[in-house]
Amino acid sequence: MSIKIDEDNWRKAILGLVIGLAEIIRDAIQIQGIKRMEKGSLTDEEVERFGNALMELNDAIEQIKKEQDIVKVVKDLRDGLDNIVDDAVNKIVNPEKWAEEFEKQAKQAGI
């Protein structure tokens, strides 16, 4: 993927990249947080603090995106990255894999 940087918009593009990365890191932290919460390795107080911190981070990110007019830039960037990841890893819905599993089960069931 090439990231297009329009000369007039270089500031927006770079800011968008930074915020896009911040969002990705936030998502990763959130996933980890939920995992720990589910495992029970966080106290109630820690969960509350964690949630508040994430909410504040969300608010800050949204505010910057609006103020800097980069909502669309960030979305395009993340969609672009998502497509790459989708191609690299299996798609969430993966019919080829389903079909394979299906054949396997059918074989086992002797159909």
Binding site: V47, E48, L54, M55
Partner: peptide, 8 residues
């Protein structure tokens, strides 16, 4: 739930 926990 309290706010932060509800978010999680």
């Amino acid at each position: 739930l309290p706010k932060g926990t509800a978010y999680m």
